[in-house]
Simulated assay, not measured.
Amino acid sequence: MLKKLKFYAIGLIPGLLIVFFILNQKGTTCSYFPNDRVIAETLTKDFKYAPAFKTEMESNKISEKFLKDSMIAAGKIDFDRSKAQAKPCPQYLLLYPKDNPRFEVSYSKCKESAEFTGLKKIK
């Protein structure tokens, strides 16, 4: 029995290390929390901006790069105020930053694109 366990460990440990290093290099993430899933899906979509949203971005001096890389990536979805079950495009309200939010971003996430409709400065 001990001999079988040794053979099992000899194969398992190097196998786990190899898988860990391969997945780590590809930058894959395994997150099943609803907030992380919605944000990850949003970042894969084509971004479309409503004219009012573009105006608010300019008045608050927010670039598209900052919106994608910081606000959305580090934001938190307010599921209580979102319409995640809306058809055909769920509507979400994102708060940025997670702690002590200063901005609210409203958007719809469709199959092909994410359309940003509202940007509101809270404080």
Rank of each mutant, 00 (worst) to 15 (best):
K61N: 12
I77V: 15
A73D: 04
A86H: 11
F79C: 04
P97Y: 11
K76W: 02
R81I: 06
S82K: 09
L94F: 09
N100W: 05
D69G: 11
D99S: 12
I77T: 07
D80P: 00
E104H: 11
K76E: 10
E104R: 13
P97Q: 03
L95M: 11
K76R: 13
S82Q: 11
M71Q: 09
D69F: 05
A73L: 12
F103C: 06
D69C: 01
K87T: 12
N100C: 01
P97K: 11
E64W: 08
Y92V: 09
K65G: 05
I62Q: 00
P101H: 08
A73P: 00
K68V: 05
G75C: 09
C89H: 10
Q91I: 12
D80W: 07
D99F: 11
R102N: 05
E58K: 15
K68P: 01
Y92R: 07
A74T: 08
K68C: 03
Q85E: 14
K98M: 06
D99N: 14
K76I: 09
D99T: 15
E56A: 13
K98P: 07
K65A: 08
E104D: 08
D69S: 14
E64L: 08
N60R: 07
R81K: 12
S106K: 13
I62M: 04
F103G: 02
L67C: 03
A84Q: 14
K83C: 01
Y92A: 04
I77E: 03
A86E: 15
Y92M: 07
A74P: 00
L95W: 02
F66S: 03
F79N: 05
P101I: 11
S82T: 11
K61T: 11
Y96K: 06
S63R: 07
L67N: 09
A84K: 15
P90G: 07
F66W: 00
N60G: 02
L93M: 08
F66V: 09
E58I: 06
R81Y: 03
R81H: 04
I72M: 07
M71W: 05
P88M: 10
K65L: 09
A84V: 13
R102T: 14
P101A: 08
Y92K: 09
G75Y: 11
Y96W: 14
K83L: 01
I72V: 13
V105P: 02
R81N: 10
